[in-house]
Simulated scan of single mutants.
Amino acid sequence: MGVEEEFHVVDLGSRVLVARAHEVLERLPERGFISEFLQSVVESNSGVHVSLDALHGDLRRSRQVLSEAAAGLGLAILAAGTAPLARVGAVDATPHPRYLHMADEYRVVADEQLICGVQFHVDVPDRDTAVRAMSVLSPWLPTLLALSANSPFWLGRDTGYASWRTLLWQRWPTSGPAGCFDSAADYDAAVAGLVRCGVISDAGMVYYDVRPSANRRTLELRVCDACPRVETVVMLAGLFRALVVDACAEVQGTDRCRHTRPQVLRAMTWRAARSGLGGDLVDPITGRAVPARVAVGALLARLRPTLEEFGDWELVSAGVRESLARGDVADRLRRIAAGGGLTSVVDFLVAQTHARPTTGAPVSVRGRR
């Protein structure tokens, strides 16, 4: 498994999102860090890991070196679905032909893409299995979104949502639930049709909540907000791996996907984005509203055999219990804002994002040759 984390770049003085990712990248190692669509985001790519402990150490080291590079420029990195203080129009697209075309084609949707997510990759047996497994996974993904939701603030105001990033992200024409595909050929034909009709320019613009990777033998989860705490990222990685393993086992030997009405999946996602852990979620089995802790508990119980098989049970179950004990992150951020304003929220998120070095080979900050 592997993880891609996106980080906002904010000014340490004003706490406002700034278009200076390229300056941070120039101070980073050439491998493991890349630019993103907008010039306010830096992406970190982990190595490939089998154990959650190894993934945890990798992510901490990456955050450390990224934080040091930003601090040397009077900047900070911030892992959250949205940066609380930002201005539309103050951040341009990264000057790459593909990104510039997207900015011109999608206009306001692209201009307001001031969001960050975390993506998870899990190895799969083959693409046919992966594509059929997506429909088994999909009803459980809103619960993972709720566990990650931390973006209530947008352009300096409270949206009332736990994950406003999700609502912004769903405006793209190929975002949301993946749908039902019986084979990799079926999925590829659908993507080719989207490119052919001009809605998207390439297969990389398929932004479904879960999708087969274009260049790896993995399933990729894309539904989660970028998470301030490394521990949350690792917990989600463990849950997603167990979901993928179980779903792949379930569809082995079949040639059909499991159909769930897309409007139901979209509604489940909206509910998770609205409430996070602070309200109800939709139970994937009954289709009824249940308290978030009940939905999370049901997911954890369902995955326990596979989590135990991988040796992940103790770490993941402890992470879930801690997340439920901490409560809804969006509500916590609102309480911080009530006491100290949005600059205090930014300071809190920066502090949560920053990680101290762990054991292992240090990663040096340097200028790019």
Rank of each mutant, 00 (worst) to 15 (best):
D186L: 01
S163Y: 04
A71F: 03
T358E: 13
R256S: 10
T254S: 15
A267I: 02
D11G: 01
R332S: 13
S44Q: 04
T353F: 05
D246M: 14
S344N: 10
C116L: 09
R107K: 14
G47L: 08
N45G: 10
A133Q: 05
F33L: 10
N150T: 02
D209N: 13
F153R: 10
D182H: 14
Q119A: 09
A318D: 13
F33W: 01
L265P: 07
L85T: 06
A351T: 12
A338W: 06
S183C: 03
M102E: 11
A337D: 10
V191L: 00
E30I: 14
S46N: 00
E6P: 03
R60N: 04
D280M: 04
W140P: 05
A249P: 10
L28S: 01
L243T: 04
D11T: 07
W169A: 03
P284G: 03
R368H: 15
R217D: 14
F348E: 15
G341N: 09
L12P: 04
D280R: 08
V329A: 14
H121T: 03
V282K: 00
W169E: 06
T353L: 02
P95S: 10
R369V: 14
T306H: 07
T143K: 03
R368V: 12
V18Q: 02
G160D: 08
L78N: 06
S183Y: 09
R63Y: 08
L307S: 00
G74M: 01
V206M: 12
R211M: 08
A237G: 05
R321L: 13
L167R: 11
I77S: 01
F120M: 00
V210D: 03
S40V: 06
A130L: 10
P284N: 07
C197G: 10
S201W: 12
A289Q: 13
S44D: 08
V88K: 00
M268G: 04
R368M: 12
L17E: 12
Y99W: 11
A267S: 05
S151T: 08
A237C: 03
P291C: 00
D158T: 11
